[in-house]
Design a protein around this nucleic acid. Structure first.
Lengths: 186, 186
DNA sequence: CCCTGAAGTTAGTACTCAATCACTAACCAA
DNA sequence: TTGGTTAGTGATTGAGTACTAACTTCAGGG
């Protein structure tokens, strides 16, 4: 397998592992095992653990951007809103890891910034802005609606992280995500 | 100093430290240093690191409950909403650590649950429900409004964690928190 | 004046983890 | 065959970490 292909699979494995344990709670050995490669070899593909996390974070944001781009393609206003909400609902049910990775990303940024390392922070903020704009345009560039959409998304992320069962009453006020979630998740 | 008083200061120190590095990124030595006590002594005050984190998480939620209880005292409906939003704004400006600790709590729950440890998860979910109800009642038991309030809160937590500057346009759609934040944070 | 119990420390253990180094095996062009 | 590149491994190192055990210090009471 070429180095580039390996790097690709490392990023995917890293997203999985980091989503569980976060930056500090994930060992490079765990990532290597998931890739099926020796641990030292990771350091030939990436300069260090931080670089792996950064790549995983950027990919995570990129995935979300693409999800909403695809969902809202050719749609506007309320139709786009529903399409994007449905798409997110699918992510909740099928790839909850992605939501957790988002959360891990956010807290990792806070830690890095306080340690004087702004590289991750700048990348994540740039990615988030791209995500924000990706949602903003199909919603008719309505700031309030965009903010609402993102806010619901963040609430959902937190509820998923906390492990609230899909039928729990905290989901009640979330529409349409909650109802769809009730359907999709077992 | 009595053991009980020490435990109290350990919890406060732990909230600070865990809010930065999360569970895995925070050493018991860092907590001990902040308390001004030797590291092994922590294990006489608490059975282990996990217990310290649990205590810090519970205290964090308790603090938020108290914040909203105090803010909404004697108020209902829109008045209560504004009072609670203002109170949260104050927390954003003066105690951003508390918001970060919340985030750290959420991701720690996800990690613990997947590792088969449900103790933290149950405590956090119970605490969150108390928080939810604390907000729910003054808002006239309106589920949608409560969900909105919590969603905005979670979005704010994430933006703060990512380190978006107070004047950044992502804050624009947040009302009244954003405007107040612009005023309060330098 | 000694005894007890509680607060707190020093020294140490067993372990994990990121990163480095020296090496091998396969392939490929001249 | 030779010389070079690329994918990959095993052994190791040095720093850090949660937790334990044994010791110290000291206030208060009989």
């Amino acid at each position: 397998m070429s180095a580039e292909e390996r790097r690709e699979s490392v990023i995917r494995a890293a997203m999985s592992e980091f989503s569980r344990g976060g930056y500090y709670g994930t060992s490079t050995e765990a990532i290597a095992k998931r890739v099926g490669v020796s641990q030292p070899y990771l350091f030939r593909l990436f300069p260090g653990k931080k670089a792996i996390f950064l790549a995983a974070a950027e990919r995570c944001l990129e995935d979300s951007v693409r999800t909403f781009e695809k969902a809202s393609e050719g749609l506007h206003g309320e139709a786009a809103l529903h399409a994007m909400a449905d798409a997110y609902t699918k992510v909740i049910a099928e790839e909850p890891e992605r939501l957790l990775m988002q959360m891990q990303m956010y807290v990792a940024v806070a830690a890095a910034e306080q340690a004087g390392d702004h590289e991750l922070g700048e990348a994540v903020r740039a990615g988030w802005m791209r995500l924000w704009d990706t949602v903003h345009l199909p919603l008719g560039a309505d700031i309030d609606q965009t903010t609402d959409f993102m806010a619901y998304g963040m609430l959902i992320n937190c509820l998923v992280a906390m492990g609230f069962a899909p039928r729990h009453r905290v989901w009640e006020g979330l529409y349409p995500a909650a109802r769809s979630k009730g359907r999709l998740e077992h």
